[in-house]
Computed example of a mutant assay.
Amino acid sequence: MSKKQDNNSTETLVDPRKAYYTDDFPRQRQEAPGVEEKMTPKPDAGERSYRGSGRLRGRKALITGGDSGIGRAVAIAYAREGADVAIGYLPSEQQDADTLRTLLEEEKRRIELLPGDIRDEEVSRESVRRAAEKLGGLDILVLNAGMQQAVKHIEDLTTEQLRRTFETNVYPMFWMVQEALPCLRPGASIITTSSIEAFEPSPILLDYAATKSAIAGFTRALAKQLADKGIRVNSVAPGPVWTALQVTGGQPPEKIPEFGQSTPLGRAGQPAELASVYVFLASEESSFVSAQVIGVTGGRLTY
């Protein structure tokens, strides 16, 4: 029997320890930013399992890092909930973006592709402008793009990597929110992706953990600033989730086989397991939720 639970099962309860892949991951390595299609096993972004119910009907969303991993799962969920979606991604990730576009267009869902490196301020701002233009507005901004490279010792952390990590993970959030605000009406939602690393940092992810702490602070401060505009701001903090980040240097190669097994639930998460939280935070169901960081961590604590 497969180690991966069939999410279409008619059983009432699913054991969370066995809900998704539980075997050791094959040892593997790709150059960053990586292509999800080449991973073994391929991450589960809910392509076959997510079922929408119109919770975001008529909404218009921009998702950074939307081609693969968590961003891909969010794009699939939003589209199936009735939203029009634009995704940002690096040009080198075109293969993953194309497979996502094919999937959603076959389902008669609208998706716009916006390739570009958002470390560049003008690219960040232009991505927002193009998304609003192509979708006819903007209601949801998901700031999810990220870079993660493991380094064992601070002495080996280069200024180039330090700059690149902050320029990818933190700076675009400021530029994109600034550009999006004129489009966002009361009821709009901004959602960031922070991490368990903001609360329980790994010694080999020093720069990454620092950016994720910054994102948590950014989220809470921005939520207070935008409350009087009727715009909610929240964050999702993933734990160890099987994405291309892990096989492109986010984890040392020797740690890949047992990735995620140290969580209380004993396995890594899959991107599909986060999608419903992003849907909740974008929907009217979370109308009294703002300035929160919601952990999806397999049992690790985010406070």
Rank of each mutant, 00 (worst) to 15 (best):
G295C: 12
G58W: 04
Q30R: 01
R48H: 13
M39R: 02
G187N: 11
Q246Y: 06
R129E: 14
G82N: 07
R220P: 08
V85N: 04
L104Q: 06
R232I: 13
R101N: 00
T40Q: 15
G137N: 09
G187M: 08
L245D: 09
E93L: 00
R129C: 03
L222S: 09
A210R: 13
S283I: 12
I111L: 15
S276K: 14
E284R: 10
E93Y: 01
I87V: 14
S92N: 03
A79F: 01
F280E: 08
T168C: 13
G88S: 15
R55V: 00
L181S: 13
Q95A: 15
Q251D: 04
E121T: 09
P253G: 03
R300N: 10
A19C: 11
D24G: 04
L181E: 15
T302D: 03
I256M: 14
G88I: 00
S276H: 10
G136P: 12
R29G: 02
G295M: 10
Q246E: 14
T165Y: 02
A275D: 05
P115S: 06
D84L: 01
P43T: 02
K229D: 12
G65T: 07
A61E: 08
L13H: 12
Q148C: 13
R267V: 06
L281F: 01
A223R: 02
P271L: 07
K255Y: 09
N234W: 09
T165K: 02
Q270Y: 10
R300V: 05
A61W: 03
E155I: 04
K38R: 14
D6S: 10
D120I: 06
P240M: 02
Y78D: 09
